[in-house]
Amino acid sequence: MSDSAKLELELKQLIIDTLELEDITPDDIVADEPLFVDGLGLDSIDALELGLALQKQYGITLDAEAEDTRAHFASLNALRELVEARRER
């Protein structure tokens, strides 16, 4: 498994555990589909919760007001690219 695929699986598990998604497995999360609203159906509280998890796990601090924060949360692929580029641990 490539590093990128490993990180993808790790992020899926992080989302499932952090957001207590009952009945959802990593396979249910499609990497290029929207995480919020239309796709997986996450909401604004999930976005905040996920922001905290990224900070704790990878040391990434996001600015809630910044325009690009929205883009980072668009899909699992976007999230993985963010972690690859900015992780501190």
């Binding site: 957001l19 207590e20 509280i45 999930d46 905040l48 919760e49 905290l52 900070q55 704790k56």
Partner: peptide, 9 residues
Amino acid sequence: EALSPARFS
């Protein structure tokens, strides 16, 4: 440790 928004809500 940051406070969980989901727990708070």
